[in-house]
Amino acid sequence: MTTLTARLPKGRLARSHGSPKRRRARGSRWGYIYAAPAVALVIAFIGVPLGSVIYHGFTSWNGFSPPRWVGLDNFKVMWEDPIFLRAIRNNVLFALSVPIEVVGALILAHLIHERIPGWRFFRSTFFLPAIYSTVVIGILTSVVLLPQGPFNQFLGDVGLSGLQHNWLESTGTALGAIILVVVWANFGYSVLIYLAGMTSLDPQLAEAARLDGAGFWKILWKVHAPNLRRVIELVFVINTITAFAYMLPYIYTMTHGGPGYSTFATEYYIYETGFSGGHLGYASAIGVMLALIVLVIGAVQIRVLTRGEK
């Protein structure tokens, strides 16, 4: 865990003391050749599609006849399209769960960092949900939450049959169920990121605070959290982007966006309107909008992250 990160600063130091000039003598042309496969791949399969999605976002296109330029029409329609607005609203609702994840994972990481009994076991098992395929998680959840499924059966067994519910097919609970599953699937990932950040904390600070009588929570909030600000923000951004751009497998396997449009998300709309509806120009425009939203979230991240730099 530490070998890689511990090496970096040492390496940079060694480089600055070394003699970069001597290296320059060799292989100036080969640098391009060695970098070429990576550059070619990102251009071919990210750059070209990105250019294409931007262009087609300004067209009306059904995939068969040539695309027809329509200017900003798709983007104008979008903001009056109730389904699109509903999808964006759902994405925002998904993102509302992010603070729970950010704070919850921080507490869990702190407990592991403090070497709570069994911490090794917790560290390994907490990441398991992030190892299961999102599709496996989605299908399993939909099985567990079936009207006659194990969860309702369990509620009946413990005498709570009044709470039995058709969880994924009721507007009131489907969205909440998805949020819960996604938070569960990702918390181990956030915990690991925190743990990585905590390795750089000075243990003497916590020790000193402890001698001053600070308890568990005080050490976490007043001593550690300020030093972990960047990592906390990173966890925040990663989970927010997940809420906007990585929900499709869950929605696809659990609700297909329903009931009604209550769990419809932007990505799912791209899929539906593009591949089932054949409105590829419009789907492209939504793709552009989604990329922009994610870019804004990322830009806010960079702004926030560089704010404290001298």
């Binding site: 550059v39 990105l50 999605v53 990505e267 593009g274 789907a283 793709g287």
Partner: peptide
């Protein structure tokens, strides 16, 4: 290795991290 444009090319490759793959489905 040292070559002209290395830093810019490196950043160019890294920059695509910002694109969410689902936006490129179509």
């Amino acid at each position: 290795q040292d070559w002209r444009g290395k830093r810019a090319t490196y950043l160019f490759v890294l920059a695509w991290l910002a694109v969410p793959p689902v936006a490129l489905m179509v």
